[in-house]
C-alpha cells in the first residue's frame, strides 16, 4: 500500500512545498520528553515494585543487580551468543530465500498459482504448533532454533515482497518494455528497486517475528540462551533475574528494527523523500 501511494504522489509537483512543512518538529524536544517519560516510569515501577512480593514482580534496581550477577560468571554473554547466532542465521536465511520467492510470486502468475496457497497457509497457521515435529527432525541444538526462526520469519518477508511487486505500476514496467528490456532487466532495473520499500517492511516485521521465534525455540527445545535463563529463573522464583533477558530481548528487538530502518535509508535513499510527503 505504501509503495502504491508513493508512486502516485511522485506525479504531483508540490514536493518542495510539502517537504518544507514536514520538518517543523523539533527533535531535541522529543528526546527530553522521552527521557522524562522513561525516568518517571522507572520511578513508579521502583516504588510499586518494592511493595510487591519479589516472586510476583521485580523492580529496576533489583533487575540491575541481577544483571551484574549474570554478567559475573559469563552466563549472560554465553546465553546471548547461544541466542543470537541461530537468530542471525535463521533470519538471514529467511531473507535470502524469502525475497526471491516473493519476487517470483508477485511477477509470474504461474508461480503464484503454484505456491501462493502454501505461503498464505504458512502465514496463517500458528507454526509454533509444529515445534514438536521440528524437534524430531532437527534435534535439540542449533539446527532446530534456526529452523524455527526461519519458518516464522520467512512468511511476512515473502508476503510483503509479493505485495510490493504487485504494487509496481504497470506503466513503470511498460517503460522497460518500450526500451526493449529483457525479463531479467525489467526485474533487476525496475521491479526490484521499486519493491525495495516493501521488502524492507517485510524485513522489519521479520525482526520481531524472529526474536519471538528464537525465545519460543529456547523454551521448547534445549532450554538454553536467553530464553533458557527466563525459564530457569522462573522455575527458581528468581523474578529479577528473569527480567534481565526480557529487557535484553526488548533492546535487541528495538535495536535490530532500527538497524533495518537505517539500512532502508541507505539502500533506498529516494524513498525517504517520498514517504515524508505523507506526513
Amino acid at each position: 500500500m505504501e509503495g502504491r501511494s508513493t508512486v502516485i504522489t511522485t506525479r504531483k509537483d508540490q514536493v518542495s512545498k510539502i517537504n518544507k512543512m514536514s520538518s517543523k518538529r523539533k527533535p531535541i524536544k522529543d528526546i527530553y520528553i522521552i527521557i522524562i517519560s522513561l525516568v518517571l516510569i522507572m520511578l513508579i515501577w521502583e516504588i510499586f515494585g518494592r511493595q510487591i512480593n519479589p516472586i510476583f514482580a521485580s523492580y529496576p534496581t533489583a533487575i540491575f543487580f541481577a544483571f551484574f550477577d549474570l554478567m559475573e560468571g559469563g552466563t549472560l554473554v554465553t546465553a546471548f551468543g547461544q541466542s543470537v547466532q541461530p537468530l542471525a542465521v535463521g533470519y538471514l536465511l529467511a531473507a535470502v530465500v524469502g525475497i526471491p520467492i516473493g519476487l517470483l510470486i508477485g511477477r509470474y502468475r504461474i508461480v503464484e498459482s503454484a505456491i501462493n496457497i502454501y505461503v498464505i497457509a504458512g502465514y496463517a497457521t500458528p507454526l509454533v504448533a509444529l515445534i514438536p515435529l521440528f524437534v524430531l527432525w532437527f534435534g535439540l541444538g542449533f539446527g532446530v532454533k534456526v529452523a524455527i526462526v526461519f519458518t516464522l520469519t520467512i512468511f511476512p518477508i515473502i508476503i510483503n515482497t509479493t505485495d510490493g511487486v504487485k504494487a509496481v505500476p504497470k506503466t513503470m514496467i511498460e517503460v522497460g518494455t518500450a526500451f526493449v528490456a529483457s525479463q531479467s532487466a525489467i526485474m533487476r532495473k525496475i521491479i526490484i528497486p521499486a519493491t525495495i520499500p516493501h521488502i524492507m517492511t517485510g524485513l522489519r516485521l521479520g525482526v520481531g517475528k524472529a526474536v519471538i521465534a528464537m525465545v519460543i525455540a529456547e523454551f521448547f527445545t534445549s532450554i538454553s540462551g536467553l530464553g533458557g535463563i527466563i525459564i530457569n529463573s522462573g522455575n527458581n522464583f528468581d523474578t529479577a533475574k528473569m527480567f534481565v533477558p526480557v529487557i535484553i530481548l526488548m533492546i535487541l528487538g528495538v535495536g535490530l528494527t532500527a538497524l533495518v530502518g537505517k539500512l532502508e535509508s541507505i539502500v533506498a535513499p529516494w524513498q525517504d523523500k517520498m514517504t515524508k510527503k505523507h506526513e
Binding site: R11, T171, M172, E174
Partner: peptide, 26 residues
Amino acid sequence: GMIFQHAELLPWRTALENVEFGLEVK
C-alpha cells in the same frame, strides 16, 4: 522511442541515470 504522458521516470534514478536507462538496457 516512446514518451509517456506522465514522463514515467524511475524515481530511484537521477535525471542523468533516467536518460541512460535505454542505453543501459541496450
